[in-house]
């Protein structure tokens, strides 16, 4: 077997790209710990380096994701893991749920309204505009809503990930500027604004913040799936 055919072997490809993904993530994390700038965040640096490698080696997304999809699939068990911080913060949540609900409703409304208005101003219309509306939710919810309101679910998935990256960075800036007193507000900010990626960031800030962000992320998704038919009525 020559080196070229060995290289094209799916198992070898899977091993190489999985290893590359994990190593670049670890490297990007170290880099960010050393120089904590927002533009050095691991979720931006690691994919950028991988994309350069994929382009240089002429590897398509389909080839790449075939070998690394197991990493994305681990988001399932990671979602289950949120049960632990949510359970530990149950007293706080039981006492404060009305204000979380108020924040979620206000945030969701802002997400849809500003996306719609900005897309209008920037001349983005049709399916593309509709695909942008549900991007603040976590991927499975967002794709569900996108299909429901007439967007393109695949494209929405890309916007969701971009929102996560941008949101985790923007969240730090917003956090530094706003005079917020409660961990509740800090957690809700990441959970509503930047779904899973934001929640991961909130978890790094504090346990309470992470628990609130995780809970809020899940509830916002549920709320929007339930409200999607209403949103359509409103848009028509």
């Amino acid at each position: 077997m020559t080196a070229a055919t060995l290289w094209r072997e799916p198992l070898v490809q899977a091993a190489v790209w999985s290893l590359a993904t994990i190593l670049l993530y670890v490297l990007a994390k170290r880099l960010h710990r050393r120089w904590p700038r927002w533009w050095l965040m691991p979720l931006a640096v690691a994919p950028a380096l991988l994309m350069i490698a994929a382009l240089a080696l002429n590897v398509s997304y389909r080839d790449y994701i075939r070998g690394t999809h197991w990493l994305v699939a681990l988001l399932g068990p990671a979602t289950v893991a949120f049960a632990v911080p949510i359970y530990e913060q149950r007293a706080l949540i039981r006492r404060r749920w009305p204000m979380l609900l108020a924040g979620m409703a206000a945030g969701s409304l802002t997400a849809v309204a500003t996306s719609w208005a900005l897309a209008y101003v920037l001349g983005i219309d049709g399916e593309l505009r509709l695909s942008l509306l549900p991007r603040s939710m976590s991927t499975p919810f967002a794709m569900e809503v996108s299909g429901e309101i007439g967007g393109i679910p695949d494209l929405t998935a890309v916007f969701v990930v971009l929102t996560g990256i941008i949101g985790a960075a923007v969240g730090d800036v917003v956090l530094a500027r706003l005079p917020l007193r409660s961990a509740l507000a800090k957690g809700a900010l990441f959970g509503v604004g930047a779904h899973g990626a934001g929640t991961a960031r909130a978890h790094q800030i504090g346990r309470e913040e992470g628990a609130i962000a995780g809970l809020v992320m899940v509830l916002v998704g549920l709320m929007n799936v339930a409200l999607a038919p209403l949103i359509i009525q409103f848009l028509r």
Binding site: T21, I22, L24, Y25, P42, L43, A46, P47, L50, M51, A54, L55, S60, Y61, R62, Y64, I65, T68, H69, L71, V72, L74, L75, A78, T139, D154, L155, A157, V158, V161, L162, G164, I165, G196, A197, T199, A200, H203
Partner: peptide, 15 residues
């Protein structure tokens, strides 16, 4: 958890 998001970003290659 952030690691599990990294491969999804590469979907940009298709767009």
């Amino acid at each position: 958890m952030l690691l599990f998001f990294v491969p999804a970003v590469l979907a940009l290659l298709d767009h």
